[in-house]
Simulated scan of single mutants.
Amino acid sequence: MAKGKDKRTIVTLECTDCVQNRFKKKNKKSPGIYRYVTQKNPKNTKSLLELRKFCPFCHKHTIHGEIKN
């Protein structure tokens, strides 16, 4: 028989370049911070998730790191 599905948690990935630029430019208004939503299995991936994804605000592929929900 097939086993039941493992509990997968929903995680949010945030663009690291947008976050750094937002704190550097305090006077200028930044366009925003782009976020992706994905799932991960906490049994297999205990560390924080980091993926390289496209950010439409930066107009390039950047590293998106996991944040607290």
Rank of each mutant, 00 (worst) to 15 (best):
M1H: 03
M1S: 14
A2K: 12
K3L: 10
K5A: 13
D6T: 07
D6E: 13
K7M: 04
K7D: 09
R8I: 02
T9G: 05
T9N: 11
T9E: 15
I10K: 13
I10D: 09
I10V: 09
V11R: 06
V11C: 14
T12E: 06
L13Y: 01
E14M: 08
E14A: 13
E14V: 10
C15S: 15
T16W: 01
T16Q: 09
D17H: 06
C18R: 02
Q20I: 02
Q20V: 06
Q20W: 00
R22D: 07
R22S: 15
F23I: 08
K24V: 09
K24I: 13
K25S: 10
K25W: 00
K25I: 00
K25R: 06
K25L: 05
K26N: 00
K26Y: 01
N27R: 11
K28Y: 04
K28A: 10
K29H: 08
K29R: 11
K29S: 14
S30L: 07
P31R: 12
P31Y: 05
G32I: 02
G32H: 07
I33L: 03
I33G: 05
I33E: 08
Y34Q: 03
Y34M: 01
Y34E: 12
Y34A: 04
Y34C: 04
R35W: 00
R35F: 04
Y36E: 13
Y36R: 08
V37C: 11
V37L: 12
Q39C: 07
Q39I: 07
N41A: 04
N41G: 00
N44L: 09
K46L: 11
L48Y: 07
L49W: 03
L51N: 11
K53M: 13
F54M: 07
C55F: 01
C55H: 05
C55M: 04
P56E: 03
P56V: 03
F57V: 09
F57Y: 15
H61Q: 14
H61C: 13
T62E: 13
T62A: 07
H64Y: 15
H64M: 14
H64E: 01
G65Y: 03
E66F: 00
I67E: 01
K68P: 00
N69P: 01
